[in-house]
């Protein structure tokens, strides 16, 4: 009897082992690859004088009548460009140099200002669609953009520069020092093209916004950031190990306030407000409040060019 039971014990034990066999390892399906189509190169648009805007007019009625958003001035701004347009975490308000100009225009129009945080890539599209009335977001005036939107007279002359790590400051001799280095700039800005034209060996890295570049910089994913000196000053203010070395300008970046291409009345009105700000000293007050502490130089308002 016992010997018979022993005979069954082995296959029985084997079956028990089989019955208790383990699980397959959990696997995570691989995400589908995103297919991106390369951007079609565009032919540069030429114009006689990109700085030339419309003659100023204080016709408030005409300016208000053309607003896409009735009864309020919807302004596209940056929410994360320190000193130009950024959210104050303490108050939740968006504030900065650009915002001060937009607020003055709304005040002169006598309508409430509604700020809408937009990315650099959205500036023209939202104006064209009429979702916003105005863009006050460190927007450089150029011929290509003039073909899509209308600009005010230049309200600030920025220049393109480069931000590097503090330990690379003394070795930085200009764009030639960036050969083989990873340099970040926002998508849809011309900054990378400008620097690549001078130093083709730059490795361009794109982020959605300048703060995205600073995150990459802090995480060691890029070696430098390029952009307007105003923007770079704001980035350096957020990181003690990021510096803008003494350097010559790479390009001029004249800022204008953009409106819908057909909204000339508003462009004229903005120009009259800018004239007023230049003459009553509020331009200088605004500059001294927001930019001078970081750029550390005195500045004078740009001379407006009209006649368009």
């Amino acid at each position: 009897m016992i010997r018979g039971l022993r005979k069954w014990a082995v296959p029985f034990a084997a079956l028990l082992v089989l019955a208790g066999c383990g699980y397959d390892d959990t696997t995570v399906p691989k995400p589908e690859a995103v297919v991106t189509t390369p951007a079609v190169p565009t032919t540069p648009v030429k114009c006689d004088n990109k700085l030339q805007s419309y003659a100023p007019s204080d016709n408030r009625g005409a300016a208000i009548a053309n607003l896409a958003n009735k009864g309020r001035l919807v302004v596209g701004v940056s929410g994360d460009t320190l000193r130009l347009g950024s959210r104050n975490p303490e108050t939740g308000k968006i504030e900065g140099f650009d915002i001060a100009f937009a607020q003055r225009v709304a005040d002169e129009l006598g309508v409430p200002m509604v700020v809408r945080v937009i990315s650099a890539a959205d500036r023209i599209g939202l104006l064209e669609k009429g979702e916003i009335d105005m863009v006050a977001r460190n927007m450089t005036v150029n011929c290509d953009r003039w073909s899509k939107v209308a600009f005010s007279a230049v309200y600030y002359n920025a220049t393109q520069k480069v931000l590097v790590r503090a330990d690379a400051e003394k070795d930085y001799k200009g764009p030639q020092s960036l050969s083989g280095k990873r340099v970040c700039a926002p998508t849809s800005s011309t900054s990378v093209d400008n620097i690549k034209a001078i130093q083709p060996d730059v490795v361009a890295v794109l982020a959605l916004k300048h703060t995205g570049c600073l995150v990459k910089f802090q995480n060691g994913d890029v070696d430098a950031i390029t952009g307007d000196d105003t923007v770079l000053a704001g980035l350096a203010a957020q990181d003690p190990y990021a510096v803008v070395p003494k350097q010559g300008k790479l390009t001029d970046e004249p800022y204008g306030i953009a409106v819908n291409k057909g909204d000339v009345a508003l462009a004229r009105f903005i120009n009259s407000v800018l004239d007023e700000m230049r003459s009553d000293g509020s331009w200088k007050d605004t500059y001294d409040e927001w930019l001078k502490p970081y750029l550390l130089v005195d500045a004078t308002p740009p001379t407006p060019v009209y006649g368009r």
Binding site: D80, N88, P89, T211, G212, V215, Q218, Q238, D239
Partner: peptide
């Protein structure tokens, strides 16, 4: 940490 210092990069870290 960045937000407490009033730096906009805090929002970028958060959304990232």
């Amino acid at each position: 940490d960045n937000n407490r210092q009033g730096f906009p990069i805090g929002a970028e870290y958060l959304s990232g």
